[in-house]
Simulated scan of single mutants.
Amino acid sequence: MSLYPDTLENMPVTDQIVVRCRKGDVRAFRELYEAYSRAMYNICLRMTGHAADAEDVLQEAFVQVFKNLEKLTSDSSLTAWIKRIVVNHCLSYLRKKKVYFEEVGEMDAAEEAVVDEGAYAFTVSAVKEAIGQLPDGYRTVLNLYIFEEYSHREIAEMLGISESTAKTQFMRAKEKVRQLVKVKTKEV
């Protein structure tokens, strides 16, 4: 995306919206928000675990997006750039809540046990419910790894924890989800 395009017609729609936002077009701000808010809200909801908190974090993140559109470079993906801002706001929110991440030693980061997943009747709703019941620290690492596709190294850097702690938190989160789903499927 050129910062000073000759014509908007030859640009992708999202680039056109960004250019119009940079020029102060209020409708473009709304279009940008509407184009990305649902997906970004889902990130916020997964990370915070609460609809009201997710809405607050989303609004704060979009304020930052709008304030910083001038910093978006032509080689940046708009979606990835917005997602990074949203994830950072979620992490800030969790830090304010003082989410606890268990520090573990290398011995705790051993290989996970093999589980016969075929024995469980995994359903989307049961898994979503189980993830929602996880402690904030487990849920955060699980969401960042599975849904946001960050590596354990990136997660460790973002959260200020060791890579082995990020891996262990993820393994424990997966195991807790399995246990919760197992209990849920036995109730059905």
Rank of each mutant, 00 (worst) to 15 (best):
D6N: 09
L69G: 02
A28T: 10
E34A: 09
S37A: 15
G49L: 07
V65F: 01
H50C: 09
E34G: 03
Y41K: 06
G24Y: 12
L45A: 10
E55S: 14
Q16G: 08
V65N: 00
E70L: 01
K67G: 00
L45F: 15
L32E: 04
D56S: 07
F29M: 10
V57H: 01
R46F: 09
V26P: 05
T48G: 04
P5Y: 14
E34S: 10
L32I: 05
R46D: 05
Y41D: 06
F66E: 04
I17T: 13
G24P: 07
Y36P: 02
I17H: 03
F62M: 05
Y4C: 12
I17E: 03
P5S: 10
P12D: 12
V13D: 12
E55P: 05
R46P: 03
Q64N: 12
G49T: 09
Q59A: 08
M40Y: 01
E31K: 09
K71L: 12
Y41Q: 07
T14L: 11
F29Q: 13
P12S: 06
Y36D: 06
K71E: 10
Q59H: 12
V26S: 11
E55L: 09
D15L: 00
Y36R: 04
N68E: 09
E55G: 07
H50S: 09
H50L: 03
M11R: 12
E31H: 05
P5G: 12
V19P: 01
D15I: 00
H50A: 12
Y36C: 04
L69N: 02
L45R: 15
V19N: 04
T14C: 04
V19M: 05
I43R: 02
P12W: 07
N42S: 15
R22Y: 07
L58K: 04
K71S: 14
L58F: 05
T7E: 14
T48C: 11
D6W: 03
R38I: 12
L45E: 11
G24L: 07
Y4Q: 13
L45W: 14
M11V: 08
D25P: 09
P12H: 03
A35Q: 14
L45V: 08
D56P: 00
P12T: 02
P12R: 03
Y36N: 11
S37N: 10
